[in-house]
Nucleic acid binder design. Sequence first.
RNA 1: GCUCGAGUGGCGGAAUUGGUAGACGCGCUGGAUUCAAAAUCCAGUUCUUUCGGGAGUGUGGGUUCGAUUCCCACCUCGAGUACCA
Length: 1040
Amino acid sequence: MMNYNFNEIEAKWQKYWADNQTFKAENDSEKEKFYVLDMFPYPSGAGLHVGHPLGYIASDIYARYKRHKGFNVLHPQGYDSFGLPAEQYAIQTGQHPAITTETNIKTYRRQLDQLGFSFDWSREVRTSDPSYYKWTQWIFIQLFNSWYNTDADKAENIDSLIQIFEKEGNTNVNAVCDDDTPDFTAETWSAFSPKEKQALLLKYRLTYLADTEVNWCPALGTVLANDEIVNGVSERGGHPVIRKKMTQWSMRITAYAQRLLDGLDKIDWPQPLKDSQTNWIGRSEGASVTFKVLNNTVTERSRSDENVISTPVNHPYEIEVFTTRPDTIFGVSFMTLAPEHELVSKITTREQKDEVEAYIEATAKRSERDRMADVKTITGAFTGAYAEHPFTKEPVPIWIGDYVLAGYGTGAVMSVPCGDQRDYDFAKHFDIPIPNIFEGVDISEEAFADKDNTVIANSDFLNGLPYKKAVKRAIFELEKLGQGKGKVNYRLRDAVFSRQRYWGEPFPVYYDADGMPQMLDEKFLPLELPEVDKYLPTETGEPPLGNAKRWHWLQYGDEGKVVSKEEFENSSPLGRLGGALELNTMPGWAGSSQYFNRYMDPHNDEEIFSQEAINYWQDVDLYIGGSEHATGHLLYSRFWQKFMFDKGWVPKDEFAKKLINQGMITGTSAFAKRLNEVEVSGFDDKIKSKCTIFTSKRDTKVSSEYSNEYTIDDEGRSWRKGTMKIQSGEDIAKSRFEPFFINEIKKVYPKYEDLDNENFRFNYSNIHIDVSYVNSDDSVNLENLKKWNDEFKQAKFILSTDDKFYAHREVEKMSKSKYNVVNPDAICEEYGADSLRLYEMFLGPLEQSKPWNTAGITGVHSFLKKLWRLYHSGPNGEFYVSEEAPSADSLKTLHKTIKKVEEDIENFSFNTSVSTFMICVNELSAQKCNSSAILEPLAILVSPYAPHIAEELWEKLGHTTSIATASFPKFEEKYLVESSKEYPISFNGKMRFTLELPMDMTKEEIEAAVMAHEKTQQQLQGRTPKKVIVVPGKIVNIVG
RNA sequence: GCUCGAGUGGCGGAAUUGGUAGACGCGCUGGAUUCAAAAUCCAGUUCUUUCGGGAGUGUGGGUUCGAUUCCCACCUCGAGUACCA
């Protein structure tokens, strides 16, 4: 007997592929290239669960398919191995994160290998490897040495900017830079000190050091990016986040806002993902308008950067606002500034000072989360100051309010209560007038924000104009006054690039004697992470790298090294370069923003990748990964790619042509309901039961006779059977255990004696139990559960009516802490990797998320056994194929399958091709097909999905080389041609019966044949049809 | 609130240039095989029915000879995002 021995077969071929480097991709090939990429994993300590491989299986099928189609396929894999969990483990145990990471990677590799992926492991990268992060540091230096020339619409070398400054200052420079960049002439530039020059250049560099208001997470001791915060708390751990000013490295991603938006049109990415990037970038068109503050003049030295400019000026304060509705400017009845706005303290009058300061203090205390949770409460304060309306010259009161965000636009708005609901609510609350500037609109109840139906009134030169025309005219008039212009505003902020962590890429940066940041020369890269004693911040609050004994840069000429502070200070200052090295490290997304290009030439130590490699591979053809990276990794990577493109290092300005988000495979958690305590109303007492009590739940209904009589023992079971209409242990607890318990309580505490049952409140909570103790009908194996931990060992269980304990089930994300993780190892052991691969594809559409349910895996497993039997039709189940010509039916089955599977793979509809295989094997089995002319191509068709069994069958068919590059069977239409068609005959659109008719009949002949049929006459019951629709080859519909 | 997506048997799901709704698998029911079980195989399985048939793809309308598919309104669920001026 030749059974399908999958464990043996799979181990054999996994070894074969590794030994023969079957999937090694060559950088030069006559073949056309195809690049299939997975989002590389973070190697966590928990290892892989069944949800992780979903996307890898899909991409592997596609990669294998493309090899069959004759492409030179690049399908690499690696590890995003810097990250928080390894560091937190290090803080707890003192174990170096590198060791933890190495261990975890070993587990990952073993688990990935056992699934039979066709990765080219010779190209593996790890972001935490110095040989890899050398190039992450290199890109950082390139960004530092670049500025964004808006006229050329691309990044350029900083030298070209310096040349312009030397020649003509910055007045004609059209660049993306800090808002507070002052104007200067060539003469002023040359008069600046080197330090001043450096400070100015930082305002232009694509990565720059600046005091920024950041999201500080005290619990994690680090800064978080906006996309690392969910609902006002940290994505990792759910800790509170506050706003704080810190000096941080930032990436000038805003320079690329428009190109990041435009680029979305030319890539084939999922619409929801594009939408969320579009939202994140948040382009809005409108105007910036300048309001002059009345009776208040700037007298002190102005401009924030006193290092650079210190010209005393004398002019009124100005408030710049951004609005998308310049057409409503005559509706302005007040202005609102964010409490953090820098002008607030300068313009507030003496009388209002106390109120304003109290308000600012109160809002500062509220966390992001509180502020978000409570958007309905209207708060604010009047500054006492007034601004001048640009057109009417009327005074406009200036308020502050926390509904205006400091981080968006200019942190100030012109409030138009009749046209904006928030302004309207604010005005109502503080009794500010609400002038109506809309024709024929009632604003007594709410603001009117419908742009399309807007006709402006009471607005001087805008009267009678619709929205679009009014906007144009308003901007024109503002420009004439010099108090405004059309403006595009983006929600996108520059990305903070510093993290106060140990386990990340060190910055190739030291601080010179002036305290200015200097880049290490490229030839000194990589700058390796130093050893530290502790992975926590230092006592003085410095990042963990502050603990490093040696973390100063010391360089003379071409010789440079990392030394201790003492060594640096004792060295000769003559010709010396260097200083303290940067203590922050780079964020998680740094290493993942160019890894896809590094795979093309991963061992190159001279360049990030060779031009030959990038010119051959170009870009990623198919990228598969989760949608959670929509506004993080996938936005930053596009930004770096565009930068690399500007510099001429990559040929494409979008790195991935097509992207697919695989859905999440969720787990089904199991719970037991635990009685926590009993509260007695009117008393503050909380009574705990002596032992933990769990109640059962069952969904299926058990009906039984109904009676009010019952008894119960303290085990919560052994009641009189069939006397109650009870379905679950939960009901039993409610109706019988709880009254029983109350009686017991009353005995012990006589003071409760007169209380009703309603005075006792039972608190239950759901406790996760490990899904491995739960059977498929949700009943729990209590014996094993009790061995799991002490709580269950000691506990009492109220069973359901059939003496079983049923768990509550709920679909949740798979996670170790929820005890709902299903591990692929056990499934591979029991059913094999091919079964797991097929089953994950068979679960449903790739992009949809779905709960894991192991029950159905037997279906695909028996399919594989049937497939195996198809090739083993000899005596005693020996391998047997014949050289006889196949039957027409078998050819039809095969070609139908080729066609469908090819279409399915091209459309990423992997679930339907698994069905197609099942149909195909069912049909061929019924036909008793054993012809090699059918079974050979079938093995190739199956091979992308179930590669191990396919290789084994291929070898048995007499081949000596891997099936991996066998060419995909060619579909031929001629085998599908039919001579007749089973016509569905419908009456008024409802199919009533079918009728087999030859394909070559004309419409008229078909109609005659159908009308003559007895069932037609029976359906018509003597009526004459009004109309007969005949679609040859499709359907016949009789109306009447 | 806004944006996007989705609603089909007991379950996962299939079918859309409009043309036989429920492919394929799970589960369930019955049978064969077996001392028994596992495994395997065969038959059935949307609901309803007076066994002729009738109804049926979230709800209500519309377009059409014909709608799961297109249009309008509504309901429900999921995802993202949010005082964005």
